[in-house]
Simulated scan of single mutants.
Amino acid sequence: MKPLFKPIAIAMACLGLSAPTAHAQNEADALMMGKHNLCIAAGYSYSSWDRYWEGSLKRDNANIGTFSASSIMAMLNYGIRDDLNIMVSLPYVSTKTSAGTLSGLNGLQDLSFYVKYRPVRKTFGSSQKLSVFAVAGYSAPSHNYNVDLMPVSIGMGSNVTTGRLIVDYQLSKFFATASGSYLYRSNVEIDRTAYYTTRQINSNQVQMPNAGVYQFRTGYRTPYIIAEAYVDHMRTYGGFDIRRNDMPFVSNTMNSTNVGFEGKYYLPQLRALGLHAAAWRTLEGRNVGQATGFMAGVLYTLNVAKSK
């Protein structure tokens, strides 16, 4: 009996220095990096759980004990223009369990590429701003890792195409951001010629369900400090529940609602260097673990514009 591991992707913040103020930026927030700035970011995250949802049933599992996953993320972010950014990231993931005989796995996970564009930026009066962003992304496994050993698999092994829309409203130093994204997943291959979902399938090809991720953020934003709270909801469009006392499978339904806090601080004396931290908790879900996690990272920005 193996509960499901739901990976939590880390998006590291990046610091833009082309304008008089500096701002964090990743593919899910409402900020942009400045033209000709390159951000080099790294971060560490950890999450664990000892209870999970088997369908709608919340339970524990003595054959697993406590499941934990850690990740080291590397990310590059470049501002082609003030309203057009590109991002590349690659995490190294390690998983383990505290009980039973199931060994954890580790290795590089999925290489991700994002393009972020801001087509709308309006200012109302002296303190109100409205911005709209469009994000396109693509991720693919960095190598042929095992996806058929849940929950300790380091990823799902699917090529994922992502589209995201973000709307941000800022009033003085306070802001609210809403976003929604759709994830289109390719089929994956497993190392056996037959498997059972809700019926017997005689193939090594697994059809992956697509998913949507919806998020709301609100908080306080200044040139050197950003503090925010967020809630995000992931919903799988398709899939099936873990059967009673059975192991999870890569194409299971995976729904979850998470809440968290995130903070970023940029050093006034060294504006190219920033610190980033976050913590989160899964409130409810389906075929996912009730995880608690944290993240800490650093970032450094270079201006790569050619001098005259």
Results as ranks from 00 to 15, higher is better:
residue 168 D to K: 15
residue 125 G to T: 03
residue 138 Y to W: 13
residue 142 S to Q: 05
residue 196 Y to V: 12
residue 128 Q to Y: 06
residue 197 T to M: 01
residue 145 Y to I: 06
residue 203 S to D: 03
residue 170 Q to Y: 03
residue 185 R to S: 13
residue 180 G to A: 13
residue 183 L to Y: 14
residue 137 G to P: 06
residue 122 K to S: 05
residue 152 V to R: 04
residue 161 T to E: 02
residue 199 R to E: 13
residue 133 F to K: 12
residue 137 G to D: 01
residue 185 R to I: 01
residue 123 T to Y: 08
residue 166 I to M: 07
residue 131 S to L: 10
residue 177 T to H: 05
residue 134 A to T: 13
residue 119 P to E: 00
residue 201 I to E: 06
residue 137 G to T: 08
residue 156 M to S: 10
residue 200 Q to D: 08
residue 141 P to R: 04
residue 125 G to A: 03
residue 203 S to H: 05
residue 196 Y to I: 11
residue 187 N to G: 02
residue 195 Y to D: 01
residue 183 L to S: 11
residue 156 M to R: 12
residue 156 M to A: 10
residue 157 G to E: 00
residue 136 A to I: 12
residue 198 T to M: 10
residue 193 T to W: 03
residue 200 Q to K: 14
residue 125 G to I: 04
residue 140 A to Q: 06
residue 139 S to Y: 04
residue 142 S to F: 13
residue 144 N to M: 08
residue 164 R to F: 04
residue 199 R to G: 14
residue 129 K to R: 12
residue 183 L to N: 15
residue 193 T to C: 03
residue 180 G to H: 06
residue 129 K to D: 04
residue 189 E to C: 04
residue 178 A to S: 10
residue 124 F to P: 01
residue 167 V to R: 07
residue 159 N to Q: 15
residue 144 N to E: 14
residue 163 G to H: 05
residue 157 G to M: 05
residue 170 Q to H: 04
residue 174 F to I: 12
residue 146 N to S: 11
residue 199 R to F: 13
residue 179 S to Q: 14
residue 151 P to G: 09
residue 125 G to M: 03
residue 123 T to M: 08
residue 194 A to L: 08
residue 149 L to F: 01
residue 123 T to F: 08
residue 196 Y to M: 09
residue 151 P to F: 02
residue 167 V to C: 07
residue 133 F to I: 12
residue 121 R to P: 00
residue 148 D to M: 03
residue 134 A to N: 14
residue 157 G to Y: 04
residue 146 N to G: 01
residue 198 T to N: 15
residue 142 S to T: 09
residue 179 S to D: 07
residue 181 S to F: 02
residue 187 N to M: 02
residue 176 A to I: 15
residue 194 A to W: 13
residue 181 S to G: 11
residue 196 Y to H: 11
residue 186 S to H: 09
residue 190 I to N: 06
residue 157 G to V: 07
residue 171 L to N: 15
residue 159 N to V: 07
residue 135 V to G: 00
residue 180 G to E: 03
residue 203 S to T: 14
residue 153 S to H: 05
residue 147 V to D: 00
residue 154 I to P: 04
residue 173 K to W: 12
residue 176 A to G: 12
residue 126 S to V: 08
residue 166 I to R: 13
residue 134 A to L: 15
residue 194 A to E: 11
residue 129 K to E: 10
residue 155 G to N: 07
residue 126 S to L: 10
residue 155 G to Y: 05
residue 156 M to E: 13
residue 143 H to S: 15
residue 163 G to R: 09
residue 194 A to K: 10
residue 126 S to I: 09
residue 126 S to H: 09
residue 171 L to C: 08
residue 181 S to M: 10
residue 128 Q to M: 08
residue 126 S to A: 11
residue 152 V to I: 07
residue 182 Y to V: 08
residue 145 Y to G: 04
residue 177 T to I: 12
residue 122 K to P: 00
residue 187 N to C: 02
residue 180 G to V: 10
residue 170 Q to I: 09
